[in-house]
Amino acid sequence: MALPRLTGALRSFSNVTKQDDYSEESGDLMNKRSKLHKQLMSSELTWKKIVKFVEDSLDKKEQQSVNGHLTTILQAAKQIVGTENGQEAIESGAVFLFKTFHMKECVGHDETKAIKQMFGPFPSSSATAACNATCRIASYFTEEQLTALIRIAEEQNGDNRVFFGKNIVFSFDMHDLDHSEELPINGEAAEQKTISLDY
């Protein structure tokens, strides 16, 4: 239950606030998840671009080996996203897995959470397979090459823009209860008579 607050009373009983209706917001988390899915589908970095990047950067022999790993990622994405969502969704899922694991060596807590947040519950073996395959692909490239590839998506999301307030010193200190005297143990202590057992 929400704590009783002065501002709660002011929001309810004064006429200086906008009376918002929050009843429609019960499904906001579901809506947000589906919106993220859509954003993922319209990402600038596509699976085709990843495949082309590999083809353009490696010789034939290396390509053959890397193609197998790309197929593994795609299959893992199929397991995680589900076939019912179509090829486009699977490829978007594969891009997401590639972005998630391109600098990682194993499936950690953060990666598990990110995948679960995006797709819901998923088989961990698929995530591990995708992670291993991505690691092997990444080993053919320098960090700079991979960063340049991933940045295609980040530029679209504005991740490299200047962040307002980045130079502001922010304090996490908050108002706390003032130090005060302790509760007198039994307020009527002074009035209590001493009971003597010395009969």
Binding site: T7, L10, V16, K18, F170, S171
Partner: peptide
């Protein structure tokens, strides 16, 4: 609005 301003003071008034 006034309640928001009061909330801001309660939450951020000490350190900021």
């Amino acid at each position: 609005d006034i309640p928001k301003i009061l909330d801001l003071c309660a939450l951020f008034g000490k350190g900021n």
